[in-house]
Amino acid sequence: MSGMTLTFRGDAGTAVDMSALLPERLAGLTADEVAGLPLPCGGGVATVGGMFEVSAGDAAEGLLIRPGQAVLHRVGAGMASGRILVEGDAASHAGAGMSGGLLRIAGNAGDALGGALPGLPLGMRGGLISVGGNAGDRAAERMRRGIIVIDGPVGAYAGGFMVAGTLAAGGGCGPHPGFGMRRGTLLMGRAQDEAPGGFADGGTRDWLFLHLLRRALEGTGSWFERAGTTRAHRFIGDLAEGGHGEILAMA
C-alpha cells in the first residue's frame, strides 16, 4: 500500500485511541504535521509522533498501521473514505460507526468491530471491513449498512440488534448470534444444525445474491471469496424484532 505508514514505537501494551487518525483527516498533511497531532493514549494525551514513527507520504493514498505490541482501539472508527491497513491486531471498536472506505485488519479484531460507538444509536453505516483473524464479541452490533468479512470466528452476540448490512464470519459465531436482529445478513462459514434462539428454520438452498457478495469481496482474499459454494441454510429472525433478518450457515 502506498501512502502514509504509522509504525508504533511506544511501550508494549499502551492503549491508544486511533479514532482521530483517519485517511480523510490526514489527507494532504505532511509527516511532521501528522506527528504533531495530539493522540489520546494510556489515560492521557501524547502526540502521534511520540507514539508512532510517521513515514513520508499522503494518507489520501492509504494509511498503513503497524501496531506492534500496542492496543489500538477505534482504528478506523467513523471513517468515511479512504483505506486503512493494519498489519497486526486491532482492539475494540475498530471500524465502529464507519460510513465508507476500506478497513483491512490482517490480524485479530477486538470487541464491537463495526459496531456503535458509545452513546450512538447505530453502528457501521457503509464501507468494507476485512479481518484476517478472529473478532471479539458484539461484532456488527447495530450495523446499518456495509460489509464486514472475518476469516476466523467471532465472539458472542454477533450481529446483535443489527439493522441491515452483511457480516460474514468464516469461522462461525459464538453464543447468541443475531440477538435482536431486525434486518441484515449474518453469514457463517460453518454449518449450523439448529436454529439459534429467536430464529426460524428457513431451509437450505443456493442463494443467488451471495454471488453478488462474492463479487463485492473480490480482491480482499477473504474466506468467502474462496468459498466454492453459495448453498446455505437460512434461519429467519430475530422473530422478536419482526423476522426480517437472516443467518445463513454455509451448507
Partner: peptide, 12 residues
C-alpha cells in the same frame, strides 16, 4: 418480505 442488499455503490 423483500430484502435490500447494498454492495459497494449498487443496491439490489
Amino acid at each position: 418480505h423483500q430484502i435490500s442488499k447494498k454492495f459497494g455503490d449498487r443496491r439490489f
